[in-house]
Design a binder for these strands. Sequence first.
DNA 1: TAACCAATCCAAAGCGCTTTGGATGAAAAG
DNA 2: CTTTTCATCCAAAGCGCTTTGGATTGGTTA
Lengths: 340, 340
Amino acid sequence: MKLKELAEKLSLSQTTVSRALNGYPEVNEATRERVNKAALKFGYSANANARRLAMGRVGAIGLVIPADSSQRFGPHTAEFLAGLAERLARDEIDFLLSPIVDNDEISVYKRLISSKRVDAIIVSGPVLVDERVSMLLDANFPFVLHGRTNIEKPHAWLDIDNQGAFYQAASHLIDLGHRHIAMIDGLRGFTFSEHRELGYRQALGERGIEIDPRFIVHDYFSDEIGFRETQRLLACTPQPTAIIAGSMMTALGVARAVRNNGYQLGKQISLITHDDVFPYLNASNMVPSMTTTRSSMRSAATRIAEILVRVLDGEPLHKIHELWPVELIVRQSSGPPVSR
Amino acid sequence: MKLKELAEKLSLSQTTVSRALNGYPEVNEATRERVNKAALKFGYSANANARRLAMGRVGAIGLVIPADSSQRFGPHTAEFLAGLAERLARDEIDFLLSPIVDNDEISVYKRLISSKRVDAIIVSGPVLVDERVSMLLDANFPFVLHGRTNIEKPHAWLDIDNQGAFYQAASHLIDLGHRHIAMIDGLRGFTFSEHRELGYRQALGERGIEIDPRFIVHDYFSDEIGFRETQRLLACTPQPTAIIAGSMMTALGVARAVRNNGYQLGKQISLITHDDVFPYLNASNMVPSMTTTRSSMRSAATRIAEILVRVLDGEPLHKIHELWPVELIVRQSSGPPVSR
DNA sequence: TAACCAATCCAAAGCGCTTTGGATGAAAAG
DNA sequence: CTTTTCATCCAAAGCGCTTTGGATTGGTTA
């Protein structure tokens, strides 16, 4: 069923039918009613490609995702997508996931832009000097960045205060009396990871605590890494009495290693985790409940979607910056150091 | 830069340029070379919408995802997407995620079909009598089902042997001497969930073990549910001595509850988990290592993508059925029941 | 009654691409 | 030297929609 056929069935012109369906004012309400009913009855819905071709607008936003079997597409990405979906559904905006081909991320972005399949792009997981961001800026293509870069040229971003998160976590631990604090975070190079380390260093620096490079770990977020690195850390002299974990996955491994060595969380070893709020992994339900720096990945994504909807409606986005604070939620997994 | 402009720059017709770019034979190799170079130089890439409009083919596959804040978009979905991406990247096929609007899933599918934005659809998480499947069959739209239904009309599907998985798990536990076995699986109604329960009942039935309805739990996959339900189960008389968990998330909660009650996994309480193979949650690295029925969600998705690529190349898919076996991997979390 | 004006509808021109059905010229065949 | 054949290339017709610029109509106003 195409527009022409529908128009014929209604004895109307394509113009009128099109206008009726798209809510233009120059069509009689009775006619519009008739058209809508017929469209529903015949299951008509506009051919998206034709529509886009004619309008020059797409009604979809793009997202480039890693396609290798690496860890990069994990629960964080999933939460992010879920958050986007939650908001974009309202406006019937789809999103196009473009897998990275041949490890050539930039050209996937270029293809996405020049093939005009999306109205805007979401970039996430930036590094400090992010090639994708500078490319999109040069191309003058609308995008929203989840995270931040060092790039000066103005652009829209939304980030959480990663530095503050780890600063708070470390400070809290120092306040409790800890002097040997380790951190196990995400891969080096990513902004969030660098910012977190900055926060960690700042807290320790302010309190005159020397930084032990063995205590700073950057790797994937997985329980295996958490376990392995914690085993290693617990074998160090001096032994750390507290660990800050960058993700819930990591924390699961840390907790396991701690138990495995006969220690108790919150007693001999304290643990603070950054919690992206996975619905299926609840920090307050753990035993002992987990002290966390919390910031919902899903909410951030929903907010980004919100911003994007405005962009699609033509609003410029040069000056959208949102830095979300991260709250420290003290629970049982952190406590004053206990001598053994 | 559009085709017309590129053609002008090259002093060629649009036809020739189009043909050169799309690899048609009726164009001189030298010319093709020249065209390709120019396209690269000017950063030309065809407007996807125009291209699709002209060709009637899209180069994208559709996937409908839940947009509510429910648990339905979780790590399983993420792994599934990752698996798809891994394969589809090779052929530069994108996928379109359509969030469900107003809880009206069917109409999202209808819209996806009639708006011609995708060449095929992936349906996952079917229930036994799945409305979406019958609709797609009626509409004669190509799709691949991840899972199975009771619907007779032939269609393509790929599923894992969920019944066999729980049958194996339960049988193994019975072999070890367990007589009180509980299962905590996904929501009722979903095929996978029903099939698993079937396997469980079959194993117990064959060995003449009476089924205690209190021991069969259907709920979301989350550590919280795992914890709560295990607490409840451990308070039952008689107490189950073994639990089969439907997901790794659930299992984390189960393990926690078991510890919380002063029991050891694999000793007083045995645990077998279905493992969808999350890269960040490794059953063999747990302590104690986890006995699982294993089947990689990601691999299944990759295979489905493979099938879809063939569909897009015009191959019919009426008769594609794949039932993947699930292997039981015995590790430390299951052992003979120990009296207390 | 004539002139005017909204309100409503329509024909036709794109949007940028692919593809059909020929042209064109040079090489091969007669 | 003429005819046929083949390899190249091209003009123009869609693909299904939106949108521009007018027509048409019935009701208002002077």
